[in-house]
């Protein structure tokens, strides 16, 4: 069992709190993404788990061991860095064997394990080359091989794909997922790329200002955001604010919006989040909710049309529509938007 637990971990630099009392668990064999803007504390959390940073308070557990006071080199972690961090003065094989050597594995056994790790990342026979002779994507694979060959208790990835171009990044995502599944390593992945987080992870943790604001499976976090921040940071959202009335929400313009979320007490103010792709242009039959708006900008992106709209109150809205029949609405068109109560999520501010 090598799950990872952090318990009431906090870190302050000078007077700026970077992490405020984080408690969470990363299950054995799971792939968790730490997602957040820069300065949210995601990298700090990863580096605390790695042991590069000592938390001011709290515990870090890897498996059943309290490693809070164990230095990096005693934690048996595998780590991938944004810059690959391959040792430029060593061959690929020497790079991969570095951690094995530190564990007393040398000679034929080390060679066998290095070869197997390079095969796993699909770079068999690259052992004698130097990092300089490899492309960025290949270097990244070597870094992965070097991190997993030591059979770490946990694999920590610090934005390792951010330096790659888009196509290569997608390739590496598939590769990373395959290797993670094969090895069954508990993996923690720091990223600021929401799409990457959604595609790769079993769980996504959204961090804001040093706190985990939401953690859960990607679908849950996306479909049922708990806060305005997570609704906005993960994907796009429209927000409507009103007062709770008869189990629904009364907007300023008088219209009543229904939601399947649990709403606060009657009379209190609540914010509702609706994903732009969950809205549709009303044509005859309408879903439970609707609102009128005027198109301000049309963005034609091929398969998807994205409209920026404005309600009579000046509230900005977004709508993503599938380009089914090739009709494109024009700026200035007045339309009615409709969506279901089930896609209307009450969020905390």
């Amino acid at each position: 069992m090598t799950n990872v637990k952090v318990n009431s971990v906090a870190k302050t630099y000078g007077t700026t709190p970077v992490l405020a009392d984080i408690t969470t668990e990363f299950a054995d064999g799971s792939f968790t993404s730490l997602l957040g803007p820069s300065g949210s504390g995601k990298t700090t959390l990863l580096r605390i788990i790695a042991g590069f940073i000592k938390p001011d308070q709290g515990l870090v557990m890897i498996g059943n061991n309290d490693v809070t006071d164990v230095p990096v080199w005693g934690r048996n972690i595998g780590m991938m860095f944004q810059s690959y961090a391959l040792f430029p003065h060593m061959t690929i094989a020497q790079n991969v064997a570095f951690g094995l050597e530190r564990r007393g594995i040398r000679g034929a056994e080390a060679r066998r394990q290095v070869d197997r790790a390079l095969e796993m990342v699909r770079l068999p026979g690259f052992g004698d080359r130097t990092p300089k002779q490899l492309s960025g994507g290949q270097q990244q694979r070597v870094a992965l091989a070097r991190a997993i060959v030591i059979k770490p208790s946990v694999l920590l990835l610090d934005e390792p794909l951010s330096a790659l171009d888009r196509r290569l990044r997608q390739e590496m995502q598939v590769e990373l997922l395959r290797i993670q599944r094969e090895s069954g390593l508990t993996t923690i992945f720091v990223t600021h790329d929401q799409e990457e987080a959604l595609t790769l992870s079993d769980k996504v943790a959204i961090l804001d200002k040093g706190r985990i604001v939401q953690i859960g499976e990607p679908e849950t976090v996306y479909e049922k955001p708990l806060t305005r921040f997570s609704a906005e940071f993960l994907g796009d959202s429209n927000f409507l604010t009103g007062a709770v009335e008869d189990g629904a929400v009364r907007l300023a313009d008088g219209s009543l919006i229904k939601s399947t979320s649990i709403l606060p007490a009657t009379g209190s103010t609540v914010t509702l989040a609706i994903r732009p792709e969950k809205m549709a242009i009303a044509s005859g039959s309408t879903a439970e909710n609707s609102i009128k708006a005027r198109i301000t900008t049309v963005i034609y992106a091929g398969p998807v049309l994205s409209y920026h709209l404005e309600t009579a109150d000046g509230l900005p809205l977004k709508l993503f529509a599938q380009n089914r029949d090739g009709t494109v609405l024009k700026e200035g068109d007045e339309i009615s938007l409709t969506w279901s109560a089930q896609h209307t999520v009450a969020v905390a501010d």
């Binding site: 990096v72 080199w73 595998g78 961090a85 040792f87 570095f98 070097r146």
Partner: peptide, 24 residues
């Protein structure tokens, strides 16, 4: 981060310095 990489692989800071930084 080269030294950090070495430490994540099990090097003490001193070993990381002599095996990675000094040769470079």
């Amino acid at each position: 981060d080269l030294e950090e990489a070495a430490m994540s692989l099990g090097s003490t800071p001193v070993h990381a310095f002599f095996s990675v930084t000094l040769p470079l």
